[in-house]
């Protein structure tokens, strides 16, 4: 029993220590952002690796999620004779929830794990030490540009996901199932609010992008410099990002859409 409590205390302490390291790491990363701005080339390279390489998975998933929503929504709504609201249903579920959340989960799986593996391998092969010995701060040179790229990519990817999904829902809804196209769009436009829905969705995706990129970079930077350590860190990135994104989504939803 005492052993169990000791173990519990020890693991609590290690997780707090890790949280502290992660916070310190975040502060250094944020202060390093200022040195990224005069060097857009660094950012551009990372936008390619973080954003462009996630582009395909995001658009294709968005299309399919929208199509499924169109199909399922139609079956439910047609029971009440409310097929005309299909556009509203598809768009509000995408813009408010599925767009930011699913694209952030995909982002953590695609770009986040790649970032962790990349940074972890740079650590294992002494590249980070090497950079430091060349009098270059690896946080400023390696971490901060990647962080900024993640932060900028995420809202764009989420918007892309939602937009493609809405079009996918329209393809299935009015193309396949015969919902009036005008009703699809007009119901959506009448009910979705720019401030409440679109802006809040974008805020969500920025928060998710911040957290997912932070976790991915920190796990890589904090990984044990061995192949086993890097592979464990990559797994932790995906698991921790998923927990954080879904947990934060609940909090943000409660804050944003609570009093309506």
């Amino acid at each position: 029993m005492i052993q169990f409590l000791q173990g519990l205390g020890k693991s609590t302490r290690t997780s707090f220590t890790k949280l502290g390291r992660a916070t310190f790491f975040l502060l250094r990363t944020l202060s390093g952002l200022f040195s990224v701005l005069p060097r857009p080339r660094l950012l551009l390279n990372q936008l390619y690796f973080v954003g462009v390489l996630s582009f395909l998975i995001i658009t294709i998933s968005g299309l399919f999620v929208g199509m499924v929503l169109g199909l399922q929504g139609y079956y439910i709504l047609s029971d009440f004779g409310a097929e005309a609201s299909l556009g509203l249903m598809v768009a509000s579920s995408l813009v408010r929830e599925l767009g930011p959340v699913v694209s952030a989960l995909l982002f953590a799986g695609r770009a986040g794990s790649a970032l962790t593996a990349e940074i972890g391998l740079m650590k294992a092969t002494e590249q980070l030490s090497g950079i430091e010995m060349m009098a270059v701060d690896p946080i400023k040179r390696i971490i901060s540009p990647r962080f900024l790229a993640g932060l900028l990519s995420m809202p764009l990817l989420a918007a892309l996901f939602s937009a493609v999904g809405i079009i996918g829902g329209q393809l299935v809804g009015s193309g396949l199932l015969g919902v009036d196209e005008g009703a699809y769009w007009s119901q959506m436009q009448a009910k979705l609010d720019f401030q409440d829905d679109i802006i809040n969705g974008i805020i969500k995706s920025i928060v998710f992008g911040f957290v997912a990129t932070w976790i991915a970079l920190f796990e890589g930077y904090d990984a044990m410099p061995t192949s086993e350590g890097v592979s464990r860190a990559t797994t932790r990135t995906v698991v921790n990002s998923a927990f954080s994104i879904l947990g934060l989504d609940f909090i943000l939803t409660a804050l944003m859409f609570g009093d309506d």
Binding site: L121, M122, T125, E126, Q127, S129, G130, I131, E132, M133, M134, A135, V136, R141
Partner: peptide
């Protein structure tokens, strides 16, 4: 540190850059 060179056991070359860019790295920084 700018006045100290260090040769790591693995070489520690930056894997996403060519040989030329690796050698140019400290100059460009």
């Amino acid at each position: 540190r700018k006045r100290i060179g260090m040769l790591f056991q693995s070489g520690a070359l930056l894997t996403d850059m060519s040989v030329y860019d690796n050698v140019a790295f400290p100059l460009r920084e």
